[in-house]
Amino acid sequence: MYLINYTSDDFQKHLQKSDTVIVPIGSVEAHGHHLPLGTDIFSPRLFCQMIEEKIGDYVWIAPEIPYGQSYDLSVYPGTIHVPSEVLAEYVYAVGKSLYENELKKLIFLNGHGGNINALNLASEKLAQLGMTVLTINWWLDFSKEILTITEGQGHAGEDETSAILYYDERLVQMDKATKNFKKPLYRVYFKDRGKILYENAMSGDATLATKEKGEKIFKLLTEKIVEIILNVRNGKYIAD
């Protein structure tokens, strides 16, 4: 149920169907020379479309939040960076208003790693209101599953490039796909980290990506995400 497609009256009438809402979160950020700036928006968007097809009457889907924390990649043209503390407050305000509209369970469907700290901060505050909040980071939470399909992962790497090829291959310039295997030894921050670590605004091996791999990723992960959504909706999120 796409929230913005309903009138106010119809929203109120259909609230009895579900008190669970998905908020897709992305970023506008450089993804190599071959992927669009909206890569982290498009993946959650497609997951939501597939979720709507499968369980549309069981969950609300709110409009996506397109901007995110992109400090590392802000050295590359086209990246829009929102500091974590600003993003956290904004996301909290959105979640609080959803809660006040009787949507008691919130799932952040996140497409961008830089957003994680902000989403954790917002989730803590929303939980204090009485809301149940879960963040799904699709490339991270299902890394094991993705690696049954791809040889590796990375920012604008094989997995993300495959995902966008499946989303809309017209947006991908595979002739510009590159490789970058640099990885930090520790969780360390330093000057020019983004330019050094994410050379050419990417990591991994984008040249191995295919549309077929992207299709497999979306179909497999959608099944996993749907299961999680239904469990959260039914209050099943603690192991016995």
Rank of each mutant, 00 (worst) to 15 (best):
N137G: 11
E158R: 06
L147E: 14
L185N: 08
L208P: 04
L129M: 15
W138Q: 09
F108D: 01
G130Y: 04
Q128P: 04
G111D: 02
T135D: 08
I228T: 15
A127K: 12
E145H: 05
L221I: 13
Q128F: 03
K144I: 10
F142Q: 10
K211L: 13
H155K: 06
N137P: 00
E158N: 09
I228G: 02
F190H: 09
L230M: 13
R193I: 14
K191S: 11
G214S: 09
K211N: 07
L140T: 15
E124D: 07
G114H: 07
T148I: 00
K195L: 08
S162F: 03
G157K: 09
H155W: 01
L185K: 13
Y99Q: 07
T135A: 15
L140I: 12
N137T: 11
W138N: 05
E145C: 10
K224Q: 10
R170C: 11
Q153E: 11
I149L: 07
N137H: 12
Q128D: 14
L208K: 15
N110M: 04
I217W: 00
W139K: 13
A156G: 06
V133P: 04
F190A: 15
E160T: 07
N117Q: 11
S162Q: 05
G113Q: 05
A177C: 05
I164G: 02
E158I: 10
A163W: 04
T161Q: 07
I146K: 12
L221M: 10
L147Q: 13
E100A: 14
D205R: 06
I217A: 05
P184R: 11
L109K: 02
T210K: 11
F190V: 05
A177T: 10
D141R: 03
K195N: 11
R187D: 14
K183W: 14
G214Y: 06
E145M: 12
E102T: 03
A209R: 07
V188R: 00
W139I: 12
T132H: 08
Y99E: 04
A177L: 01
L221G: 03
V226C: 07
T135Y: 07
E223W: 01
M202D: 02
S143G: 13
K183Y: 03
G152N: 09
D205H: 06
D192Y: 09
F190K: 13
G154I: 06
L147H: 08
N110A: 09
V133W: 01
L220E: 12
T210Q: 09
F108W: 14
L220H: 01
K213F: 03
T178V: 05
K105F: 02
V226S: 09
R193P: 08
V133K: 01
L126I: 07
S123W: 00
A156F: 03
L121P: 00
V172Y: 03
Y198M: 14
I146E: 02
L109R: 06
Y189C: 08
K182G: 02
L230F: 02
M131Q: 12
K191C: 04
K182I: 07
I228K: 15
K104H: 12
D192Q: 10
E212K: 11
Y186P: 07
A177H: 02
A209N: 09
E102A: 14
E227Y: 11
V172E: 01
A156Y: 01
D168R: 12
A163H: 03
K213E: 10
A206W: 00
L171D: 12
R187Q: 10
Y198C: 03
N120E: 10
K179V: 13
E215K: 14
L197P: 08
D141A: 04
